[in-house]
Design a protein around this nucleic acid. Sequence first.
DNA 1: GAGCACTGC
Length: 767
Amino acid sequence: MSQEIQQFRATLPINEFKQEILKQIQENTFIIITGDTGSGKSTQLPQYLLDDEEFRLNICQKRKKFLEERVEEKEQPKVQGFLSKKLKPFVPEDRINSTDLKIVVTQPRRMAAISMAKRVAFERNQNLGIEVGYSIRFDNSTTNTTQLRYVTDGILVRECLQDKDLTGYDVVILDEAHERSLYTDVLFALVKTAAKRRKGSLKVIITSATLNINIFKNYFEGCPYVKVHGKSFPVEVKYAEHNITQQKRNHDAVNAAIRMHLHEGPGDILVFLPGSEDCEVCRKFCYERLAEVLNSGVEVPSVLLYTLYGSQTSEDQSQVFQRADEHTRKIIFCTNIAETSLTIDNIGFVVDTGYVKQKVYNPRTGMDSLIIQPISKTQAIQRTGRAGRTQAGKCYRLFSKQFYESLSEHTTAEIMRVNLASVMLLLKSMGIDDVVRFEFMEQPTQEAILQSLRQLYLIQAIDEDGQITPMGYEMSRYPLEPSYAKALITSKMMECSNEMSAIVAILSTESIWQRITRVDVDGYQKLQEIQSQHADPAGDHLSLLKIFSEWKQATFNEQFAKDTLLNLRSLKQADNIRQQLQQLVEGTSKKKCSQFYDQDYLYKLFRKQKDSKKWNINESIKLALCSGFYFNTARKMHNGEDTYLMVYPEGTVVDTDPQSVYTVIQQYPETVIFTELGGTSQVRGVMKLISEINIEWVKPYFSNMVKVDLFKLARIEFQQRGRDAVQERRQKKIQEQEKQKDLEQKQKLEKHQLYKARFEQRKKVKM
DNA sequence: GAGCACTGC
């Protein structure tokens, strides 16, 4: 067996580059390895290092030197909170003399971490956890002896909180770095600073798909890169003559798929669409079209139609992966999920509509909107590649070559499109104060940073000088958005933390209700009936808690979940998270917190009210929610029942979510708070997850919100020394933007001329 | 006048 494995390992494309890679790693701190999937880099690279005796001894020596010097320096973190006990500097005594090489490999997805650890353990003929293991949230297979750990990127970020020099590792491999998840972007910055402090005793390897390596090279100071070829087949790309309109998108996609089915050789067809509803609509339409073709007397070879998207049950998803018989072709209508997360074998053809749904965060309004957008070139190439994994393939793009040229080079990194409050709090809790100047690989907008600081200040995670508070330290322990962490900590003080940890856990998962589309009329009506039966006029948060508790009381019954149209997968996940949160809440000291809460208006209110007869636990839960979300207060406008006016920013009008219990029971309270603002129009927000409150509870906080001194908060006066540098960067950015603008203008003009020429030509023909 | 892509601690 092991000989077989050795032979297999030798055939992997990366094997040819083994010596070169090892040489570069010896000589450099940072190294980039590019190569497409199938090159074997994720599984082989760490093994090359593990098996290289010289490398191991060399790096252990360097590590020993570094740790001895650091212990002598008695380095302390810059600021220390009195609430958090975990912030003592990490001095791993046993690491000083250890001759074990420790490697960590980060993955953007949990499944990838597990399967790679299993694969490598298998290749080394070992049980999982001895030498090789994985660690993901809620699931850890590693022990003290584990030398190679596959982890999700979020896990390594959490580990950085306790050990910012990453002294527990000798090598960090950031795998699939081109995907640029929020945590990989944070890790780039953390790992870069750690490696510099470690003076050559920490090696950093970044692996990425072949594209956009320049941005990595710039960030890691022109470090060397090794290019490894993958195993893939050529894919022929065809463009449509004209771009499709939104109305005709599904129509054209189905026709393209049918044309391929009738005229092409073997190989399944993958059709990329923006949304799950599009998938269902297309499947239905495809059946109808195929029936029409059949009726017209054309012979149609046997075919199976599937859909594939994230909110399906895993049973529905697994059907797609079952093999059809030799003479039957599969057509799969899918969303972005098939772009990277799920890989289907035997795809020979791809139809690409050129669009995705993407979440965009607007820092000014604090609103998340889900918008249909054109894909990036990188995405188009990725989608195309899905046709060339097992055979030479074809990709039909439902847009013109010009449209492709006009697409942006890369997908906008996540860090550029999310609320940065938790990232900023993370940095502050690690002693990085000057977040405005913090060097990310790609700089988020100043506005986004300032708005997140504002939010952190409003929930007292940082003080008016931008310095992290003990409360902020406490919040950073929780794997939650800071506002949820605040609500949870407050709930401990207000004696309702069991309830709050359940609520927050439910909100951390996808909907606990089954997703039923409007196409399913009966199901949709039934869902609405059940929802109204369980609706609690106290609000969405308490209604969710109620249904969750009922499921728990029914002893986690599967049938109960089915009957009440609940999503069992989300329920189980929510309960898992609830347990984790409860453990964290136990670690929060009520006594120490009271130093803060004794001054707190909401807490005083709680103390005053809690002995009165009218008071019940629901009120406490709502007060705790207010402590994290009071800036999301809205009051009813009387021109339209479900239209509300936010207290801040002034003049912001918001609607009620049609899914909210208040829409279901058709009662709209005077004053509400909400925990999420969303929508699809970017113009007007929709309040999601709403609870009725008493305006008197939050009134004393309103003046805070108006007089936030962002200048002070951002510690701008601390930056005088570095002002020139900032100015220079800003200038450069403006120049780049202008260049980009010019380019776009030029492209627009060219496009216009092209259309004009075509129009003239057609006119001529008609004449 | 609104209905939801994908991850992750």
